[in-house]
Design a protein around this nucleic acid. Sequence first.
DNA 1: TAAGGTTACGGCGATCGTAACGATC
DNA 2: GATCGTTACGATCGCCGTAACCTTA
Lengths: 299, 299
Amino acid sequence: MNLSQIELLRVLQETNFNLSKAAERMHIVQSAVSRQLQMFESELGSPLFERQGKKLISMTALGTRVMEEVDIINRAKNNIQNIAADFLDSNQGILHIATTHTQAKYFLPLPIQRFKEKYPGVKIYMVQASPDQLIEQLHARKADIAICTERVDQEHDLVIKNCYEWHHALVVPLYHPLSEGDITLERLATYPILTYSSGFTGRSAIEGAFKNASLELDITLSAADTDVIKTYVRLGMGAGLITAMAYDALIDQDLVVRDLAHLIPSSNTKIAYLKHNYLPLYSQHFIEELLIAADEITA
Amino acid sequence: MNLSQIELLRVLQETNFNLSKAAERMHIVQSAVSRQLQMFESELGSPLFERQGKKLISMTALGTRVMEEVDIINRAKNNIQNIAADFLDSNQGILHIATTHTQAKYFLPLPIQRFKEKYPGVKIYMVQASPDQLIEQLHARKADIAICTERVDQEHDLVIKNCYEWHHALVVPLYHPLSEGDITLERLATYPILTYSSGFTGRSAIEGAFKNASLELDITLSAADTDVIKTYVRLGMGAGLITAMAYDALIDQDLVVRDLAHLIPSSNTKIAYLKHNYLPLYSQHFIEELLIAADEITA
DNA sequence: TAAGGTTACGGCGATCGTAACGATC
DNA sequence: GATCGTTACGATCGCCGTAACCTTA
């Protein structure tokens, strides 16, 4: 048994048990991969994969059990490398952040700017994805840290930290009927609504509020992106429900913002990362930076 | 990085960072080991060991952190091998049991006999040790399962199962004054006592009982071994305090046994084994066998 | 016939062993 | 001088790549 065989199993898992593709990813020829797998299986004494003819179809019971340990080994191997690199120079490295558009545009700029000042040598890659993809990004090791609002509870092998609590706001053009008078759910329900796509940025809280009041929610447009929503609100397509912090007093002077904290339950934005996975010092500091910025928002 | 380097680090830990001894254990020459360590350190970019001249003295901060991951890898590697071997033939293998004399002689015979009938192909090695060594045996991987009474709480990375509860008994020769009348701690305290060595088989329960009653405990002889105690009791050296189950109605006809359940708090014998460590099926069944035998005792 | 996998064989490089040397107690 | 570690060098064995072959959609 050796580490490249362990690595091979990991890659095979990612390539649907395709030896040729695995070989390609590992930058060696296919025959080498084939042999390594044979040797490993014969060392263990039983096959790890079910075969149809020569083709690998799925994993055997042994294979799936072994794969659990393989994952542990690969994780530890990566950790060793990261720990050493960190020890060598904790101001050098790459930070992959997976998040949604709203966070990237309205929450992250400040903490990222501060972080960059402290760690100029660290490159930041921002991976934008939908909330349910964020977690996948972590598991696929394409992201180190995910910042997201929906769907991030109860995942084992994830560390989840509460970041900040926020609520929705209504935005309408100047002189829109909703720019004056008390706002109630009943009143809102009489207008076409523009808000986030299903699964995005607290959309579930909106749906929940209307459902609780037995009101029909007429969503005329939904987008992943606050700016898109604002654009169509400006065109008079309806009332926009967005994150309060996405309203910019300067840029959005042509829009009226109205608080909805009393109507729609607040949402929590969280920070998530993998358990058992070594985070470089700079990543740990980045998380601290996020929490500081979050405190400032809520204060 | 490769697995033999990982293995090397493990061995180095066990040999007080002695390269020569490590080489010996790994069945390769010392120069090879020296080189492997150099290569690994240069791959990581920083030394893992503090050196005094050329000699390895201790681990660096990096080294200790890396070693945590090394242990994880080694554990997972062993697990893979064990899982595969188990899959191949779960009736073949070695079961290392670490326990004390008392358990080995008075509790284990029945469950081991039954186990052997189901798994004739499994070899059983019994490692006798003092209670505080038992846990070490597990960590040193010289034992798979430990059965012990004292000192086995609160160890993280151990799985601990309650096995059975038992209490002490008094044994004295026929016609000894204590063979008649009510037994109290006060009465016991007026006789020289023979019992288990410190740290063994419920000795702490005895000490606790006397201390609670503010009585002096006059231990004239202590041994790790019930049979030794009985031998000296027969010689009239005093009153023996032993596990109730160590009294054999047939063999010990020349001794009088008297229950002490009302005087000395009961003790719990436990089964312990390492977390994150794959136990072959037969080991799992052995544990079941132990629990069954334990139930029969208490019933 | 293209795609996926196996087998045979030659060559190269990693790693081992031998051996000589350096340091430290 | 005994113990411990490093360095140099030749030998070997493992592993890769090339290439021919097999099997199935």
